[in-house]
Write a protein that binds this DNA or RNA. Structure first.
Lengths: 312, 312
DNA sequence: GTTCATAATTTGTCCTGGACAAAGCGTTGA
DNA sequence: TCAACGCTTTGTCCAGGACAAATTATGAAC
């Protein structure tokens, strides 16, 4: 009988790697250097991580993603880590009290696994607001809220999955309904770099672009750099758009973007955005970095203004 | 300047792990034991894998997924491996010549990155055939063909991504259009085990169930076992349906399924299918194993026959 | 006081080579 | 046909060393 999955004694190192995103080597070297984590050992001498330690590792991981460094974090207790995260959290909370209430209600539905209610509410908001405002004012904020709630254990794995799936379904449907047989310009190639797993950001961008008449083609996540390059050139795309989640290492993003920029002909624009590029403002010549989804329509209009005289 | 991604000298071990799905430890131990792979070393003594070796590793990986073992494979040259795959390939090729031609045409569109044509053709076939036949007779076979073609290098990464994305979009839209406000029975919880990445199988199942009036809720991929259990119970689902791709280790699937069966109340049925369960026929008491998508409607009808007298 | 180069530290990933349990395979006996 | 047994194969884990890349601290020059 399988005991690893339905009993709460602890997790082997491979499972911790999966759950926290910290490599096995990193887990071992932290233990060696800092004394944490300090897993139990099974009869065979192999590490068995108690749930609390995995929890703390998750918090630490999140803080590292925010730019902090392990030595400062590893001695702190989970409460202190939690408080730290609260302070660091970007103030993306909605200002409008009505909107706040809507978002809170949605979060509550996520928490309760109320898939029907969630779907209904989202669908309704989408209808009322229109796709673009829906994405900017609901989805973007709700994403952050669910991420936060997940982190502090107020939302469990299935709830988070359910949320993602419902949203993907709704956005995809909405995009499909609006795309028609669009052959418009610009032609935009959407994807992410190889290490990036998060597909929602991509869908949100597509949802911003499609209603404006852009012709979006998404390759989904995890496309090798060289393949992005060759596809963009062979497909005669006007714009390549990349999305980076907050977990994406900034350095990789910058390197990759510069390298890609160098490999693309100048008439193909390179657009990049997402939480992973927060502080990456100016260092990227020839690349348009988006601080928020709101900037997309303006950028599109600008592209059209510039391109119109040249392109038939 | 980043040289790792746009120059073809070779890949570091982490990249090979990502590309082939073989763990770093496995790559090193193969080298130690079998003498293959035999990567070059950079100035720093670190492994640098030439592209051909990565290619061969991919072939080996695929054959291992089919049940073969490394010792038999590792000495063979890529051609021999390719032939082996041909022979092993399940004879899922369409018999009807017209269908064959359609599928070949689709594959050609995938190969050429012809997203518009691909989308159009798929959409058209979907309209003409209806969702369920479309899934059974087109998607299932095309999946295999694209997988095969990818393996032998006839289809590149972006093409495969493009195909997956287009298909996800089309299926999601079709499902959404057919689901309405369905509150029907049975209520089906769809998901995969934690190591499983492939979402298309899940969507195909959903596409088979939804038009029959079942109420499907998908958690997407990679849900921990315990979470599947608790969600199924708390949500009062009638059926839990799991999908396993061919890459999924059979043993894990069997263990997990048995464990889950033991953890679920008997009135919740457990359905499982996908290429990962090929030979798993009878060994699973209390679990319905599907050899093909075609069996789903019948199973559903059977469930309704049995459940009707008991459930209001 | 700001800018920039240089030194010190931190940190993640890689390395080697040993070990072992679980899975697979073949044999034997009922 | 099946179950029980031993032998072989195979993937994953471990320890502890090493090092380069990233970050921070230091100091010199403007």
């Amino acid at each position: 009988m399988n005991t690893t999955s339905l009993s709460p004694v602890g997790l082997p190192i491979a499972a911790v790697e999966r759950d926290t995103g910290l490599a096995k080597d990193t887990l071992r070297v932290w233990e060696r250097r800092y004394g944490f984590p300090a897993p139990d050992r099974d009869a065979n001498g192999e590490r068995v991580y108690p749930a609390e330690q995995v929890e703390k590792l998750r918090l630490i991981r999140r803080l590292i993603d925010q730019g902090l460094r392990p030595a400062r974090l590893i001695a702190l207790d989970p409460d202190a880590l939690g408080r730290m995260l609260d302070e660091l959290r970007s103030p993306t909370v909605a200002t409008d009290p009505e909107r706040r209430a809507q978002l809170q209600a949605l979060l509550e539905q996520v928490r309760r696994h109320d898939h029907e209610g969630l779907r209904g509410t989202l669908q309704q908001l989408l209808m009322k607001m229109g796709l673009q405002p829906f994405v900017m004012e609901i989805v973007a904020l709700l994403n952050d809220m669910v991420g936060d709630a997940w982190l502090r254990g107020e939302v469990d794995v299935p709830a988070e999955h359910l949320y993602t799936e419902q949203l993907k379904g709704i956005l995809r449907t909405a995009i499909a309904a609006r795309s028609g047989t669009s052959r418009g310009r610009p032609a935009v190639l959407l994807t992410t770099f190889p290490e990036e797993q998060h597909a929602l950001g991509l869908l949100m961008v597509e949802a911003m672009l499609t209603p404006e008449g852009a012709c979006c083609v998404s390759l989904g996540v995890q496309t090798p750099l060289e393949d992005i390059r060759s596809t963009a050139i062979a497909g005669h795309y006007d714009i390549v758009a990349l999305s980076f989640s907050s977990a994406y290492p900034l350095r990789h993003a910058l390197d990759g973007l510069r390298s890609l920029r160098a490999g693309l002909p100048p008439q193909i624009e390179l657009w990049a955005g997402g939480a992973g590029l927060r502080t990456a403002g100016r260092k990227l010549p020839g690349i348009r970095v988006f601080a928020a989804l709101d900037d997309i329509p303006a950028a599109l209009a600008e592209w059209r203004r510039n391109a119109a005289p040249v392109q038939p």
